[in-house]
């Protein structure tokens, strides 16, 4: 899923400074699963905003709504009748949702309430970590299913570098060295010879570095 985290309250508050009528808009997709921007978080943030304004003696009207998804026109279009009344929409979706909101409603101020972090997993309750970088050209078949693009701090293709110690990355003892993990896994699978090949330079042209990406599936288009 896309994993996100709420921005600091102070930052959100300064973003909406002076606005009178705000829609806090949640999303029932990934950000609900990672407890960042679902119905519950919408209610919490809306309450916090009201508390702040009450404290300052500045009136505000905060509406709460949570869409099935903010990355799909079908659901975003549900806002078309009411969105004109808001000074701003504070989206608790990932950055995709904020963008799509802005794309579809040119006259609406679209603000992000979350920092979108990564494509990741829920390691355990309350802990998420990165697994994929969306580089556009998957090489997991070559690396035992573990991604050096997303999980090696230097994105090395022929690691581990000289900073791998006791299974940890040189940048932090909290970060596992993915190349150690790759090594251990390939050893367990009896495929260590895979590591003897020098992996070729990567085509970053299909990654974000190649410009905004798009997929068109003629077989699915109507």
């Amino acid at each position: 899923m896309i994993v996100a985290e709420r921005k600091p309250i102070k930052e959100i508050i300064s973003m909406i400074n002076g606005l009178r009528k705000i829609l806090v808009l949640g999303c029932k997709g990934c950000v609900t699963v990672c407890s960042a921007g679902g119905e519950r978080e919408v209610e919490i943030l809306a309450t916090i905003i009201r508390m702040d304004r009450k404290k300052k003696g500045e009136p505000v009207e905060v509406m709460e709504r949570t869409l099935v998804r903010q990355c799909d026109p079908e659901y975003l279009d549900l806002l078309s009748d009411s969105i004109g009344q808001f000074d701003a929409v504070l989206s608790m979706a990932c950055g995709v949702g904020v963008n799509f909101l802005a794309d579809r409603y040119p006259k609406t101020v679209a603000l992000p309430a979350l920092n979108t972090k990564f494509y990741g997993v829920a390691e355990e309750q309350g802990v998420w970590s990165e697994r994929c970088a969306g580089c556009g050209d998957c090489i997991l078949n070559l690396t035992g299913g573990l991604c050096p693009v997303a999980r090696c701090s230097k994105g090395l293709f022929n690691g581990p570098c000289g900073g791998s110690v006791n299974g940890k990355c040189e940048i932090s003892p909290d970060i596992p060295c993915v190349w150690q993990l790759i090594y251990d896994r390939l050893k367990g699978l009896n495929q260590l010879d895979k590591l003897d090949e020098v992996l070729p330079v990567k085509d970053w042209g299909v990654s974000p570095h190649g410009g905004p990406r798009k997929i068109v599936r003629e077989d699915l288009k109507i």
């Binding site: 519950r40 919490i44 309450t47 508390m51």
Partner: peptide, 11 residues
């Protein structure tokens, strides 16, 4: 007692 309930009491 969830976060919202506590916040609402303060609000």
């Amino acid at each position: 007692v969830d976060v919202v309930r506590l916040l609402k009491a303060l609000e």
